Amino acid sequence: MVIYSTHKDEELYALLKQGDKNAFMEIFERYYNLLIIYADKRLKNRPEAEDVVHEVYTSLWTRRSEVNIQTSLASYLYQSVRYQLLNIFAHQKIEGKYLKSLQDHVANFSDQADYRVREKDIMELINRQVDLLPTKMRDVFLLSRRENLTHREIAEVLGTTEENVARHITRALKILRTKLGLFLYYYMLFRFR
């Protein structure tokens, strides 16, 4: 019976390439715990470190005929684990950026939704106050603000004078400023349509 524990790494590697399972088991036992410690120090997660090392060994066995080790077997195994760790860190970084982007989008959407609700409430308040204006004054005000008609056009539509239109708009603005307060009054001037 061959004792594999006395073989050098190069000999084990040569036997591994030929498909020798016992050589593979010796390589596994020789480096497994050291690779786990190496991976665990970087990941700080023992089960994940074990998964990484298992992945490296699985790859070594399935690709044994293709693997061409230019350095030592130990160096190859450590580099393989390091490569797997770098993939994990890169994935976590991308995942972190994606989650941050998603959180920003959700927060922005929430802010926009909140803004829209507040804007709707403000517009309802303004519309209620406009509806409380005397009928003729309200008609003049709405033609001016919603229809964007000039004083002359409003006068023609309503059969009145431009001075009368100007007086109705001035009084409407004065009433709304008093009822709405300064902030809502300016909001209405810039947003009301």
Score class of each variant (00 low, 15 high):
residue 59 S to T: 09
residue 121 D to P: 01
residue 3 I to M: 04
residue 183 F to C: 00
residue 63 R to Y: 08
residue 121 D to S: 05
residue 104 D to T: 02
residue 104 D to E: 14
residue 57 Y to M: 14
residue 28 F to Y: 14
residue 95 E to M: 02
residue 36 I to S: 03
residue 180 L to G: 05
residue 86 L to D: 15
residue 116 R to F: 11
residue 62 T to V: 07
residue 39 A to Y: 10
residue 163 E to Y: 06
residue 25 M to Q: 13
residue 88 I to P: 08
residue 68 N to E: 12
residue 27 I to L: 14
residue 76 Y to G: 05
residue 58 T to Q: 15
residue 121 D to L: 14
residue 189 L to D: 02
residue 112 Q to D: 11
residue 85 L to V: 00
residue 127 N to R: 13
residue 33 N to H: 06
residue 66 E to Y: 10
residue 25 M to H: 09
residue 139 D to F: 01
residue 181 G to I: 13
residue 82 R to E: 12
residue 35 L to Y: 03
residue 136 K to R: 13
residue 145 R to T: 11
residue 159 G to L: 02
residue 34 L to R: 15
residue 63 R to K: 15
residue 14 A to K: 13
residue 119 E to H: 03
residue 27 I to G: 08
residue 68 N to T: 06
residue 36 I to Q: 05
residue 45 N to V: 08
residue 144 S to A: 11
residue 19 G to R: 00
residue 110 S to T: 14
residue 95 E to S: 09
residue 135 T to I: 08
residue 165 V to N: 14
residue 11 E to D: 13
residue 150 T to M: 04
residue 21 K to F: 14
residue 50 E to Y: 06
residue 102 L to I: 11
residue 117 V to G: 05
residue 72 S to T: 15
residue 181 G to H: 02
residue 74 A to E: 12
residue 138 R to W: 15
residue 103 Q to V: 09
residue 190 F to S: 13
residue 93 K to N: 05
residue 170 T to Y: 09
residue 9 D to K: 05
residue 176 L to V: 02
residue 38 Y to P: 06
residue 179 K to E: 12
residue 83 Y to E: 07
residue 124 E to D: 10
residue 86 L to F: 08
residue 95 E to L: 04
residue 33 N to T: 06
residue 41 K to H: 09
residue 42 R to F: 10
residue 57 Y to K: 02
residue 170 T to R: 10
residue 143 L to F: 15
residue 104 D to K: 10
residue 62 T to P: 01
residue 41 K to P: 04
residue 130 V to R: 08
residue 70 Q to Y: 12
residue 175 I to F: 03
residue 28 F to V: 09
residue 56 V to E: 03
residue 31 Y to F: 15
residue 170 T to V: 11
residue 114 D to I: 05
residue 18 Q to M: 12
residue 164 N to V: 13
residue 142 L to H: 00
residue 35 L to P: 07
residue 131 D to E: 13
residue 149 L to H: 09
residue 159 G to V: 06
residue 45 N to W: 05
residue 121 D to F: 07
residue 133 L to C: 02
residue 132 L to H: 12
residue 90 A to F: 15
residue 63 R to I: 03
residue 111 D to T: 07
